[in-house]
Simulated assay, not measured.
Amino acid sequence: MKKVGLYFGTFNPIHIGHLVIANHMVEFSDLEEVWFVITPQSPFKVKQSLLADHHRYQMVQEAVAEYPKLKASTIEFDLPQPNYTIDTLVYLQEKFGEQYSFSLLMGEDNLKNFHKWKNYEAILEGHHLYVYPRISGGVTPSEFKNHKKIHKVDAPVMEISSTFIRKNHKAGKNIRPLLPEAVWKYLDEMNFYR
């Protein structure tokens, strides 16, 4: 059974920080693949800055094209809204449970609020969490400190944000080094975030 890490996000746009983390996970943990699960645009929250689902999917596809262990996933595009991680996991388990075992990738900042997630106990019961370091305030709840299903991975600290990229691209700054080359080309050709 193949061990897959699920990396959830809007990836608006995907940047080198996302790639560094995902690649680190498949090279330096027991995960064999990482799937970028692109969060669809919520029909309830139309955010001007959020590109259409297919454009964000296309950019993730471009970013991972040369990394055979990294995949783009549209699995949440067809699930009911709003998307809760537990529902996506249940769906994936039913659909692919024989072939794959699924774990979650999350930043340390998310772990601090994990107890507020819908059915977080059920998530931990059925899945492992692979946590990468983030510079953030707050305290990790003690129940997660030495949990047998929570694995801290000593990945590089990547403090690049998609928000920073969008804002500064719009302001005319050169943000090209923060993006995989193919993503930069797509974004530039489509004139996104201007």
Score class of each variant (00 low, 15 high):
77 F>E: 10
107 G>K: 00
187 L>N: 03
117 W>G: 08
186 Y>G: 10
5 G>K: 06
95 K>F: 03
16 I>N: 14
190 M>Q: 15
43 P>D: 09
173 K>P: 00
91 Y>Q: 11
79 L>I: 05
12 N>Q: 13
98 E>T: 12
161 S>W: 09
73 S>Q: 01
135 I>W: 07
57 Y>I: 11
146 N>V: 03
140 T>M: 05
28 F>R: 13
62 E>D: 14
1 M>H: 11
96 F>S: 07
36 F>H: 03
21 I>Q: 03
120 Y>M: 07
101 S>R: 10
185 K>R: 15
110 N>Q: 13
165 I>L: 14
72 A>I: 02
52 A>P: 02
175 I>P: 01
70 L>H: 00
18 H>L: 06
192 F>D: 13
26 V>R: 06
72 A>Y: 03
54 H>A: 15
155 A>R: 01
165 I>Y: 02
105 L>T: 03
87 D>K: 02
125 E>V: 04
150 I>G: 03
128 H>Y: 08
80 P>K: 00
37 V>C: 15
40 P>K: 15
110 N>S: 14
139 V>S: 11
71 K>W: 03
160 I>A: 06
6 L>Q: 05
107 G>A: 08
104 L>T: 01
1 M>Q: 11
129 L>M: 10
152 K>V: 04
164 F>Y: 14
44 F>T: 01
111 L>I: 06
163 T>K: 06
93 Q>N: 11
82 P>H: 13
7 Y>F: 15
147 H>D: 01
129 L>R: 05
74 T>R: 11
55 H>Y: 14
57 Y>M: 11
101 S>M: 09
128 H>V: 07
9 G>W: 02
130 Y>E: 07
148 K>Y: 12
145 K>F: 05
163 T>F: 05
22 A>K: 04
136 S>M: 10
111 L>F: 06
149 K>C: 07
100 Y>I: 01
19 L>K: 02
189 E>I: 13
24 H>M: 05
141 P>V: 01
133 P>G: 09
145 K>Q: 10
49 S>G: 10
7 Y>D: 01
114 F>V: 05
128 H>I: 06
39 T>Q: 10
71 K>M: 07
150 I>D: 04
1 M>F: 10
29 S>P: 01
102 F>R: 00
166 R>Q: 11
43 P>I: 12
30 D>S: 13
86 I>A: 07
146 N>M: 08
46 V>Y: 11
39 T>D: 12
76 E>R: 01
115 H>A: 06
78 D>A: 14
60 V>G: 03
62 E>Y: 01
161 S>L: 10
39 T>H: 04
146 N>G: 12
83 N>T: 09
49 S>R: 11
149 K>T: 05
167 K>Y: 10
9 G>V: 05
15 H>V: 07
36 F>M: 02
81 Q>K: 14
194 R>H: 13
88 T>I: 03
176 R>V: 08
9 G>M: 06
47 K>F: 00
99 Q>G: 03
153 V>I: 14
183 V>I: 12
32 E>D: 10
42 S>D: 15
188 D>E: 15
20 V>R: 14
48 Q>G: 15
47 K>G: 08
50 L>M: 14
160 I>Y: 05
63 A>Y: 00
160 I>R: 06
63 A>F: 02
121 E>S: 09
29 S>R: 04
45 K>R: 12
92 L>Y: 00
28 F>M: 08
25 M>V: 09
103 S>C: 10
172 G>K: 12
124 L>K: 10
193 Y>W: 11
133 P>H: 09
169 H>F: 13
